[in-house]
Design a binder for these strands. Structure first.
Length: 615
RNA sequence: GGCUCCGUAGCUCAAUUGGAUAGAGUACCUGACUACGGAUCAGGCGGUUGAAGGUUCGAAUCCUUCCGGGGUCACCA
């Protein structure tokens, strides 16, 4: 069956050729869905043809409308408003389309295209638990992976775990000093939270030490010597913190010594490092599991941080990089406005960018993917521009397939999340909270009392996570978003549970219907407006999926799922299904309901949201 | 300061990529089925799309300038 939009485009192109001898590519003919205040399904905008036609827009619109009406069987009639032709597609077309797809579980899914794509997301540090920022990252990454899979790619989900460096050493040191051999089990603490607690403890002790130093003779001397003109003491010491950590701090020295010991392969340091990281991984696994996500491969920074030096050598040979007087290596990207970039330290050790060069190359060797998507917050836009430019200059074969899926940070109503001020929203706490809200709500409603505890718990988890996930994924990735915990537990209105409820209603109807298999749906005449709205939404889905994949933007799917659910709720309210006037109407509406349920389920799956059949 | 992203209803977000009278949810007010699930539906209130110019049949969308906010400009990651 021909796609009606493409058909209209082709025929308009044909009409313009016949009527005005104008070449106009079919693909560029503007066809929009008709605004609801006018009669029609699709609208052709005729302004682009005015120059060639040398006629007034309404006249052109009339002529094109007449051409389509008599040359396209599916076009029943039309009307003209200014330069717009509103076209009415006949009911048979919509009916046939609906019956074709009604039982297709994942209408819109594309066949495999033979290409592979890697999606990197989450990528946590191992010194503290996951928080709200990670959740946005993970939802985006997971959803993007599902979307790429749905349009035909072979997708591999990966994360790089930042398991080394000074941060984890801080947690390690704090545990050694103040931990008294306690463990997650002995304190019945979720293990990643246990490790995070020691990171916080380190920061507290360090802060105390720093405060004391500030008022000491040594601290005051440094202040007097290094302060800028007119600089206040408070501002100076805030700025000086890193320098203090590296040059004066006792705790800083101990932490750095621990890092050096680790790098030298010191047995005790490595053993402690392993112990604490394993605690964190055990904790992450629980969180990932609750979020319903998983990965195909993990990369550990401790294993990859030395990669990249080979690429540096290659770059030097090719003349892309050069060695500075002090022995450090640099790339000059000033011609593309990216300034100069250090690639190696003067002592020959790697930098962040060096690692990323190396891991990109390594991933290509591991997977031979044509595309790699990095889901990383937009504060790293510059870093990725530089990284991609360097990989291009190194003529890496995948360089054209690199994409940084940058997303805006998540703010709270009170402002930015700050770990130092304790305003960071913990991922586990957040999930517990939404599920708790659902539970309270569900008890009032009392619709699940025939189920056992476990089944109920699963449903409430699904509903709670739907609320949380939809709240986040409905926002365009690029935008910085405000996360209001109060609103995120809403279960009414433009929410995940609202969409689930549409699905649940359909399941309930389908359960009640135990009719014969030979459907009368085909005999149905005269579509109701609400039915047509639903069919047109379903019809538009493949294009929306394509768009979501092209733009790496799950939010368009969230918007689609919401409007489909909304239209269904209205349809359900206005029209009786099982008690319809005729058998044909009943059967048609059952088919329509099934199609909507399938599309809702598929779309939500792409967003990482599960659909319960009751709630 | 340079570069970059953003600014839409009180609040949270849309707007078919330049199309018609800028739409949803929320909050507030009002209404709805002895009906297949009321986590629903309908109505009301709410806008100079940060400001001013420009481009054209048409601008929230493109260009210029300004205002406000974020990010970034490390031999940190």
């Amino acid at each position: 069956m021909a796609n009606i939009i493409q058909l209209i485009q082709e025929k308009v192109s044909e009409a313009v050729q016949a009527l005005y001898q104008m070449e106009f590519p079919a693909g560029q003919v503007p066809v929009n869905t008709t605004r609801k205040e006018f009669e029609g399904d699709y609208t052709v905008v005729v302004f682009p043809f005015t120059k060639a036609a040398r006629k007034a827009p309404p006249v052109i619109a009339q002529e094109i409308g007449e051409y389509l009406e008599s040359n396209v069987a599916e076009i029943e009639r039309f009307n003209v408003v200014k330069g717009f032709v509103n076209l009415v597609v006949n009911d048979d077309y919509w009916k046939n389309f609906l019956l074709d797809i009604a039982t297709v579980e994942e209408y819109g899914r594309q066949p495999a295209n033979g290409q592979r794509v890697l999606v990197e997301f989450s990528s946590p540090n191992t010194n503290k638990p996951l928080h709200l920022g990670h959740i946005r990252n993970i939802l985006l990454g997971w959803s993007t992976a599902q979307i790429m899979d749905a349009v035909g790619y072979d997708v591999k989900k990966i994360q790089i775990i930042n398991d080394r460096g000074i941060a984890i050493c801080k947690s390690m040191l704090a545990w050694k000093k103040y931990g008294k051999e306690t463990t997650p089990i002995s304190t019945t603490t979720k293990p990643d939270h246990f490790v995070g607690k020691f990171y916080v403890l380190f920061e507290q002790h360090f802060q105390e030490e720093y405060k004391a130093w500030q008022t000491s003779a040594a601290g005051q001397a440094v202040f007097q010597e290094h302060k800028k003109a007119e600089e206040e003491e408070q501002g100076f010491f805030k700025r000086y913190k890193n320098h203090y950590f590296n040059n004066y701090s006792e705790l800083g020295k101990e932490a750095r010594d621990l890092l050096l010991a680790w790098e030298a392969g010191d047995e005790q340091a490595v053993a402690l490092w392993k112990k604490m990281n394993n605690w964190v991984y055990a904790g992450f696994d629980i969180t990932y599991d609750k979020l319903g996500v998983n990965f195909d491969k993990l990369y550990f920074e401790s294993e990859t941080y030395l990669l990249g030096k080979k690429l540096v050598d290659q770059g030097l040979e090719k003349g892309i990089f050069y060695t500075c007087d002090d022995g450090s290596v640099e790339a000059d990207l000033t011609d593309v406005k990216l300034d100069k970039k250090k690639i190696l330290r003067s002592d020959g050790t790697s930098l962040y960018i060096t690692q990323d060069l190396g891991t990109a190359h390594q991933r290509y060797e591991d997977f031979e993917a044509q595309k790699m998507i990095y889901v990383v917050a937009d504060e790293q836009n510059h870093h990725f521009k530089v990284l991609f430019e360097l990989l291009k200059r190194l003529e890496e074969p995948y360089a054209d397939g690199l994409y940084h899926l940058a997303y805006g940070m998540v703010d709270l109503p009170s402002g930015k999340m700050k770990s130092r001020e304790g305003t960071v929203v913990d991922a586990d706490d957040l999930m517990t909270e939404v599920v708790g809200e659902v539970q309270a709500n569900s008890e009032e409603r009392d619709t699940l009392n025939d189920l056992d505890q476990e089944q109920r718990a699963e449903i409430m988890h699904q509903v709670g996570l739907a609320a949380l996930k939809f709240f986040i994924t409905k926002v365009h990735p690029k935008k910085r978003m405000t996360f209001d915990p109060k609103e995120s537990v809403d279960l009414q209105g433009q929410t995940g549970p609202y969409i689930q409820n549409a699905y649940v209603r359909i399941q309930s109807v389908l359960r009640k219907w135990e009719g014969a298999a030979n459907s009368q749906a085909n005999a149905y005449q005269q579509l109701e407006k609400e039915e047509k709205d639903l069919i047109q939404l379903l019809f538009g889905f493949p294009a929306i999926l394509q768009e979501a994949a092209k733009d790496y933007d799950p939010s368009t799917l969230a918007q689609y799922a919401y409007s489909l659910a909304k239209s269904y709720h209205k349809f359900y309210h206005d029209h009786s299904i099982l008690n319809a006037d005729t058998e044909a109407a009943r059967d048609f509406r059952l088919a329509l309901s099934e199609a909507v349920a399938n599309s809702l389920k598929f779309t939500m799956k792409l967003l990482g949201i599960e659909m319960p059949s009751r709630m």
